[in-house]
C-alpha cells in the first residue's frame, strides 16, 4: 500500500515535471493600451508577426531554393506549396523533379541548342550579361542568376535577359521556373523569332524532364518554327 503510494508519488512527480509550460519563442512584446487615436489595431499587430500564417503574412510564403546548385532534388521551385496554380506544371512534375537529378547537366545543353541571337543592350546590362554567361559556362549558376537579375533591374523588359535566366534555371534543374521564365521572355519578345524559338526549346526540355511529353512535343514544334 505504502509502496504503491510512493510509486504513485514518483510517477506523478516525473509526469508533473513534464507539464511545465515553457515558452518556445523570444520574449513576447509587452502590449499596452493603444495610444489615443490609434484605435485597437496596435494590440493585435504586435502579436501578429509570430504566426506567419494567413493573418499576418501579407506577403505570401516564399520558398527560396536554398541549395540550388547542389541538390535540386525535391527543392521547391520558388512556388508556394498551397496554391493551386494555373501553370503548366502538373503535381506529378514536382515528384519527377525530385526523382530526376543525376543526369540533368550534360543533357541540357545537348537538348536545347542556343538559338537566340544576342541583341543590343545598354553597355551596363551587356557587361553583366557577358559576366553571367561566363559564370554559366563555369557552372556558377547562383552567380550567373545574380548577374542576370542585376541586369534585369537595369533593363526589366529585355526578353533576352529573361531568356538567359530561363537557361540558367534549366541547367540548375529548376524546370518549372525555367518554363515560367521562358514564358515571361516570350511575352516580352514581340517579333523576335529566334528568341522565341529558343524559349520554346527551353520549355520543351523542361517539360520533357518533368514528364509532360505531350506538352514537350508541342513545344518542340514551336521551337522548330512550326
Amino acid at each position: 500500500m505504502i509502496r504503491n503510494v510512493i510509486l504513485g508519488v514518483v510517477v506523478l512527480a516525473l509526469l508533473g515535471a513534464c507539464s511545465v509550460p515553457t515558452r518556445t519563442g523570444p520574449p513576447a512584446p509587452i502590449v499596452s493600451a493603444p495610444a489615443p487615436g490609434q484605435g485597437t489595431a496596435p494590440a493585435s499587430a504586435t502579436n501578429a508577426p509570430r504566426d506567419g500564417e494567413a493573418e499576418a503574412a501579407s506577403v505570401y510564403p516564399y520558398e527560396a531554393p536554398s541549395t540550388v546548385a547542389e541538390a535540386p532534388a525535391g527543392m521547391p521551385d520558388g512556388e508556394p506549396e498551397d496554391t493551386a496554380t494555373a501553370a503548366d506544371t502538373s503535381p506529378a512534375s514536382e515528384a519527377a523533379d525530385s526523382a530526376d537529378t543525376s543526369t540533368e547537366d550534360e543533357t541540357q545543353v545537348a537538348y536545347a541548342p542556343d538559338q537566340a541571337e544576342t541583341p543590343s543592350l545598354s553597355p551596363a546590362a551587356e557587361g553583366l550579361m557577358r559576366e553571367a554567361e561566363q559564370q554559366r559556362q563555369s557552372r556558377d549558376y547562383p552567380g550567373a542568376a545574380a548577374s542576370l537579375e542585376r541586369a534585369l533591374r537595369i533593363s526589366p523588359q529585355s526578353a533576352y535577359l529573361w531568356n538567359r535566366l530561363a537557361r540558367v534555371r534549366l541547367e540548375q534543374g529548376l524546370y518549372s521556373q525555367a518554363q515560367n521564365l521562358a514564358a515571361r521572355s516570350n511575352a516580352l519578345a514581340g517579333e523576335e523569332a529566334s528568341l522565341k524559338r529558343d524559349n520554346w526549346s527551353v520549355i520543351a526540355v523542361a517539360r520533357r524532364r518533368t514528364g509532360d511529353i505531350v506538352g514537350a512535343t508541342e513545344a518542340e514544334r514551336y521551337a522548330r518554327g512550326g
Binding site: 516564399y62 540550388v68 494555373a86 501553370a87 537579375e149 521556373q177 515560367n180
Partner: peptide, 12 residues
C-alpha cells in the same frame, strides 16, 4: 551566403 532570394516567376 546564408540563402538567396532569387527571382521566382509563375504564369497565372
Amino acid at each position: 551566403p546564408l540563402n538567396r532570394y532569387p527571382l521566382a516567376v509563375e504564369a497565372v
